[in-house]
């Protein structure tokens, strides 16, 4: 299975994950500072800055895109409960 690497910059942890993994599946387990509310892509609590490698994340769904717009999310910010890592190396930190 293709792998990817996600680095949670605030806690200095890099995790090798299978392609398709959502950030939410990993971030709490490593104690990263990304926090969650609804966990379903609606509340925007888990807004996350993609420091690098944003091109390695699956494009946002219509729902995620709308929530990002509603909350004036800056460029290269994603919802950790939605964003899937497809490959390569991605570095994230809490927004």
């Amino acid at each position: 299975m293709p792998k990817a690497k996600v680095t949670f910059e605030d806690v200095g942890v890099t995790v090798t994950v299978p392609a398709g993994t959502r950030l939410i599946e990993v971030s709490e387990k490593v104690g990263a500072g990304i926090t969650y509310g609804c966990r379903e892509g609606e509340c925007c609590t888990c807004l996350t800055k993609v420091v690098s490698g944003h091109e390695h994340l699956a494009s946002p769904s219509v729902l995620e895109d709308q929530v990002l717009k509603d909350n004036f999310a800056p460029r290269h910010h994603r919802l950790a409960c939605q964003a899937q890592v497809l490959g390569g190396e991605v570095v994230v930190k809490p927004a």
Binding site: V11, G12, V13, T14, V15, T16, V17, P18, T21, E25, V26, K29, V30, G31
Partner: peptide, 17 residues
């Protein structure tokens, strides 16, 4: 170390989590 931003960088596999 976490509070003061001095935690060591680590690299792990998701399976270990």
């Amino acid at each position: 170390l976490h509070l003061t931003g001095r935690q060591e960088s680590t690299e792990i596999d998701m399976a270990a989590l």
